[in-house]
Design a protein around this nucleic acid. Sequence first.
DNA 1: AGAGCATATCAAAACGTTTTGAAATCTTGA
DNA 2: TCAAGATTTCAAAACGTTTTGATATGCTCT
Lengths: 354, 354
Amino acid sequence: MGQMTTLKDISAELGLSVATVSRALNGFPEVNARTRDRVTDAAKRLGYRPNRVAQRLVTGRSGMVGMIVKLKADMTADQTFFDVITGLTAALAARDVDLVLAVDQHADPTVAYERMLERNVVDGFILNAPVPDDARVAFLQERAIPFVVHGQTATEVDYPFYGIDNRAVSADAVGFLTALGHRRVALLNGDVRWSYAADRLSGFRDAMAEAGCPVPDAFISTERPSESYGYTAALAMLSGRAGPRPTAMICGSTLIAAGVLQAARDLSLSVPADLSVVAHDDALPQLRAIAFDPALTVTRSPLRDACKPLADALIDHIGGAPAKGLQTLVRAELIVRNSTAPVPDTGVSRWPST
Amino acid sequence: MGQMTTLKDISAELGLSVATVSRALNGFPEVNARTRDRVTDAAKRLGYRPNRVAQRLVTGRSGMVGMIVKLKADMTADQTFFDVITGLTAALAARDVDLVLAVDQHADPTVAYERMLERNVVDGFILNAPVPDDARVAFLQERAIPFVVHGQTATEVDYPFYGIDNRAVSADAVGFLTALGHRRVALLNGDVRWSYAADRLSGFRDAMAEAGCPVPDAFISTERPSESYGYTAALAMLSGRAGPRPTAMICGSTLIAAGVLQAARDLSLSVPADLSVVAHDDALPQLRAIAFDPALTVTRSPLRDACKPLADALIDHIGGAPAKGLQTLVRAELIVRNSTAPVPDTGVSRWPST
DNA sequence: AGAGCATATCAAAACGTTTTGAAATCTTGA
DNA sequence: TCAAGATTTCAAAACGTTTTGATATGCTCT
């Protein structure tokens, strides 16, 4: 089958040396303008495509980065996963890098990385869903493998990351709600084993404390985000068996909020008149916060926004750029819609107790 | 940072030539047993890992295969996607091959393949979700790039594939239902743009014709599988506005079946007394047919089963094995549970018309 | 005309492997 | 003991690039 045309072919065709052809194609300044034209012309004419493998052999880079996703029994990742992969591969492709994907089914999170490194085919990794004191971070740092973390809050680290300020997410939501007079605010958080949820929780506690609002234990729940979790948790909190009910809820995701709204509906509670709801919105196409009824007030930071910065940070870091300049912590945007309102007059919700 | 140890390092250490070391490690027969031991020993001791890039440069193979998933606005792929990726990467890894993933957002399905080929980093492709006369197939065949198709019905082709016999899926379901006396059977199919659904449809029509059962147009619907599709389609069919109602339904997926069961419940119809339901079951962990109420009668062929044969077929094909021996068409298993029963006595459903 | 310098090109080394063809060593049989 | 053969090892080429160090060519200034 059709042999690839190589630098040698071009050099033979033009009576030049391979070195000059290489330089001409790579835009080195010392090659004569006319020669460069002849070379680029011949390259196009002969359909030259550089052999990446050869390039990589000499540059020592593979031009691929790895990503290893954890297979969870529940597969919650899926919703966000596809979206992230899409943006990521696009951003990587723009810089001529490919993504090698593996799924980890192992208990020890590092073995999958070890395996991929062993096959020594990737220049670096994209780490997602970090946990506090992530074992993978230690593993990769020890081996001096470049990586970038998606979703990171601690800023005092020496590797690149892109994340949202999750403490601020909670603080902003709390600040907004307390300004509306709410004092009994509940948090329907994600699973605190993940850093993002842990940070939201601590941000929530601190902000509530600062606002002088006590937070009963019953007002905080943490679980993997799902609609049914939102539904049952909200139902439990709103039943008011364990003291006064919350007048506002902060949801870890729009999915949870969907369950909360359903629960409110089933209890004949009006949102926002009886209950204010704020959710964090990753801007997934399937769950458009603006399409909720009522339209959700959210702290918003599109997941897709992370992809390009992540890809670029990793590639730059592999290229030798120091981590310090490749750390981004964005502040989520508070978007006020119709699911929030001032606290009901009495301060105690007005519906009959169940 | 720590230089990789190379063949040269080992050869220097042992006073052997690089060639011998290479041979020893690759199990060539002509190397002395003692020398081989010394080499493997030194390799382990020095932590030798072959440089894949160099290997590839000389062998011309990359040891990676590509998969390009189509980004659909609705993202229905997700459910099955994660499962497939998991099995696939595991099966590939077992043969020391990695998976390069890209997401295609382009209208022309071939451009993403073109792009990946251009970067010339994969030895072959796994094609999923084939359509009749798939443009990607023509594209890859023209360039003599190895590939394997996941989900294939036409058997008269000269490339490897692994698929289930979708015409038989329908035929088996129809055969089972007609044996129970059903004659008014409806098909809630997937989107017939995909081969699998097109085949299910033709298999359904043929089997029904053979059984001597007419099929009114209203008994056939095709749409992207979802619970709500199952719900609304079933509701429409069971309302009976356009003639007598079906006594049995064949669903393209368990997801659709979930909607059908809900519709039956809302109409106070008993499954299976009033309506028999058969679904095709891909055995996704999230939607366990046995956990339905009533437990679903299904044609079952676990999606995961396809992964290892697919990976192996592709790798063998890349290795030069002819396509003919790498084509598998499995017959789905009919599993009878509680969602099917003999047709009601009258032959006309006994519930009051709406 | 020759030194000095910038410009443009080249040949060769390097990357780390596999593979080829030849050479060295050992074994066997007469 | 020697030729023939088998066994084991080796040096070198090859894969297609990038990069290094050297060389050729032209120009400017004295």
